[in-house]
Design a protein around this nucleic acid. Sequence first.
DNA 1: CTGAAAGCGCTTACAG
DNA 2: CTGAAAGCGCTTACAG
Lengths: 347, 347
Amino acid sequence: MKVTIKDVAREANVSIATVSRVINGKDRVKKETRLKIEKAIKKLNFRPDQAARTMIMKETKTIGLMIPVLTNEYWAGLSEVIQDTLGEKGYTLIIGSDNMNPDKQEALFNVFQERKVDGIIVGSVLSDKTVKHVDDLKQEGTPIVSLYPFYSNVNCVTGDHVQGAMDAVQHLLQLGHRKIAYIGAASTSDYREMGYRNALMMSSIKMDESIIIKTNDMVRKFSHYGYESINKLIESKGEFTAVFCANDLMAIGAIKALKEAGIKVPEDVAVVGFDDISMAGLYQPSLTTVQQPIKEMGKATVDMLLELILHKDEPIAKKVTFPMKLIVRESCGAKKFMPSDNKQLSL
Amino acid sequence: MKVTIKDVAREANVSIATVSRVINGKDRVKKETRLKIEKAIKKLNFRPDQAARTMIMKETKTIGLMIPVLTNEYWAGLSEVIQDTLGEKGYTLIIGSDNMNPDKQEALFNVFQERKVDGIIVGSVLSDKTVKHVDDLKQEGTPIVSLYPFYSNVNCVTGDHVQGAMDAVQHLLQLGHRKIAYIGAASTSDYREMGYRNALMMSSIKMDESIIIKTNDMVRKFSHYGYESINKLIESKGEFTAVFCANDLMAIGAIKALKEAGIKVPEDVAVVGFDDISMAGLYQPSLTTVQQPIKEMGKATVDMLLELILHKDEPIAKKVTFPMKLIVRESCGAKKFMPSDNKQLSL
DNA sequence: CTGAAAGCGCTTACAG
DNA sequence: CTGAAAGCGCTTACAG
């Protein structure tokens, strides 16, 4: 049978109150008594019941994390960092992936509420239907940290996607590219598209909307989407010498499609991705991409959340932004740009 | 403030006992009363406190899952299936990755015990130090399902790694290969190595230990390990026309090294991987590999665990084995190169 | 069908 | 320094 505090008290010949004191190390306990109790705890292999503890202490030492998918290296990596960091501080993490399904988001919020988590980290993009839970939870006093700066009243840790995308596109510009296509998808990529547009604007390059591919549909197979998008570009006879993709999987799909169409990467077309998943360095050609400081971001997220848990009275939502880092690899390496496209000089 | 069952009782003008009955839908409650209570619950947005419930019901509706790493598509995929399946049945999953660190395994077991999880799924390979927890937990009556057939007294769901590896190597043999190298690592790959050896044996091919690369060290960067292993084979002038790698990441690293050494895949050397991660189909060349039925395995794992939770008296450890599927792609395909790649696109 | 009461395993003032 | 007792938010016999 499960060992309870009573068993320990009996074994050590003290009251349960004293055992409790030893467990929590708060009040003073005579050394002799303490040793006796510690021995009993060890002997019985006693572990205090979290549920009973939770009821009194009003804290569960549990954090909820909501992400879109676990089988995506970015989210898996971030989840792992968050979990490890929380673990060190005695917290347990409940990870929930919602597959971008509002019903699942709803269900997850309910789980978090039932489990009375001490705080919540939201990595998903919430739907209209579920975003109200954020307000409910805030009202209830449950601290929340978001990983996207979507919600004005919620604390947030995020990478500087706009800057990262700008850096990537500016790199292409410096290599001489003028016709740079963009492949992206729904809301998560908005900031990256902004960066793309900003960079072009700042170089006074006229936007060619015909080589900008995006969709509001939920994209599940990013690589497939990248692949299809290139085929669309080719079919529509879009002119481009480079492609900036909103993430690495799209970029890898794009390269595959380009190669199949007999277009060489990077010789004929340069490709840049985003995220620096581990495959980016292994792919052939290896992928130029933008790296997010996942570890630092994960830690900062946990720090911010725990801070919020300790001092619930933060009046204003804080936003912390991390810089991104351009990683230059083969897919758009320092290839010399063919000056064959004379017409581009007219830009 | 948090809404409790008392608030609902007051709002609905009944006793907390009746509210409890409505929540759990067990005893009969007059329809009128029920509606009144349901309205109150909705109005106050009440959710029963899991902790209080747990104390009485002796179940937490929580399952612990221990895996080596989350940033590995195989484990991420399996975790997601397990989580979804459990979610449907009203269970919450606590995922813990131990990074193959015995201390972390220990810590995770402690967390599982403190949280009084209703059951545990072990995907990690346990160290001598931590394997005793399995016995402790079994003694305590906590059901456990393992994802490797290592522990004789523990129920287990696993893929047929031996058969999968045999299929892969037999495929190479059918293509005419006779000098097939093997790249693998620590205990997780043992069964795959067995399959490799079995296949060679059954074809009466003498084992050439000089082209079998393995290690007992913890391998963290599989792709890097595959890369290094090929270089070792090349340095030692090992003769081989094909390589069977114990997982896809090793295979991808191997291909990279082969290419860098001027050896073409699959023309000069065929490569086969294992797992069928999503990148296997996207890599260039795409990877011939062995696919595990992750979804079915995840579901079977959950079913088996819940079964165990319901009927704790299973006398004998059951082992369920799933067949693997060989996926033939370019990296060792019987593929002749088609020069259809000639259509140049004017960009 | 419904309510009063006991009890789950802890923590924490309150006394001593 | 230590113990008796109240109480956390529920569920569930036990009465009615």
